[in-house]
Simulated assay, not measured.
Amino acid sequence: MASAPDPHQPVIVSYLTLRRVVGVLGVSLPIVIALWGFSILGVFRVLPSISDYYGLRTRDVFVGTLFTIAWFLFTYRGYERKDDVAGDLACLFAIGTALFPNTGTRLEQVLHFASASLLFLVLAYFSLFLFTKTSGTPTRMKRARNAVYRACGVVMLACIGLIGLYKLALDETPVQQVKPVFWLESLALWAFGVSWFVKGETLLKDA
């Protein structure tokens, strides 16, 4: 006898799809704004940071992507209250990063950098502590996913620390020629994107 269809299955599929979309947005954001920036500037070079693309038409992608991610994180519901709180905080910080340009007033600059830093910290928390939770004995694929989550969380934290180190000790030195902030921000976004892409069960899915 065939089993009855699960009425919750469409909701589950939609939720997994949203996780994949968020992952794709995180991975693609640095690539899209850099390529669009090349066409606008007419030269093959990247700006010092992703936030600097706010000063070009690329801000449409920058702001739009952050608001889309913020909306999903606001609607994100996990198994415990702390999952919901983390999602709400990440939403707030994503909106703050989008609304306050790094080229605005002194207050806007402070709010932008604080929001961006706190956003990555919360996203790292998702990868390190929320995505790795399991009930019962984890499967082989779950253990593999947990390894990816932890690696992504560590990468995000390392990028935040290295950006802070650069700003404190290496800014206005020859190191700035390689645009370290842009590449570290991009790496952190790619780690975030991969983490959510895996959470969407696109990779390392249980049988």
Rank of each mutant, 00 (worst) to 15 (best):
F113N: 12
R143Q: 10
Q176I: 15
V178E: 01
H112I: 07
G87C: 08
A158I: 06
V46P: 01
F93A: 14
G78H: 15
T97H: 11
L170K: 07
G23Q: 10
N146Y: 07
W183I: 05
L168G: 09
V43L: 03
R81I: 09
T103A: 13
L111F: 14
A151W: 10
L56F: 07
C159D: 06
Q176A: 10
G42A: 06
R150C: 03
V181A: 11
F62G: 12
L204W: 14
Y125D: 14
R59I: 02
L189Y: 03
K82Y: 13
Q9Y: 15
S135R: 13
A70M: 00
A207G: 14
P101E: 09
I50S: 11
R143E: 09
L128M: 05
R45W: 02
N102V: 11
Q109G: 15
R140E: 12
S39D: 03
F182C: 07
A151N: 07
S186M: 05
A207K: 11
L35W: 03
K133D: 05
F192S: 00
I69P: 01
V178Y: 13
G96F: 07
D52I: 02
S115R: 02
L121V: 15
L111N: 04
Y79A: 11
F72I: 05
A188D: 01
G200W: 07
P174W: 14
M141G: 04
V110A: 07
K167P: 05
T17F: 04
S14I: 13
Q177F: 10
L123N: 01
L165T: 09
V13G: 00
P30R: 12
R20H: 01
A147I: 10
A2I: 07
V46K: 08
S3D: 13
L130D: 04
A147H: 14
T68E: 05
V154Q: 01
L204N: 10
G55E: 13
I160E: 09
V154C: 08
A70K: 01
A98Y: 02
L73A: 12
K142V: 15
G136I: 12
L99H: 05
G193H: 00
F38T: 09
D84T: 10
E172Q: 06
V46M: 11
S14A: 11
T75I: 05
L121T: 02
Y125F: 15
D52T: 03
G26Y: 04
N102D: 15
K142Y: 09
V194E: 08
L165V: 12
P180K: 13
C91L: 03
F129N: 05
Y166A: 06
V175Y: 01
R77W: 15
N146E: 05
F197D: 03
T97I: 04
R106Q: 12
S127L: 04
K142M: 11
V11S: 09
S135W: 13
V22N: 00
Q109W: 09
L170I: 12
D83F: 08
A158T: 06
Y125L: 08
K82A: 14
V46W: 08
T103M: 14
T17V: 11
L189F: 10
F100P: 04
W183L: 10
S135D: 04
F93Q: 06
E172F: 09
L41G: 10
L170N: 13
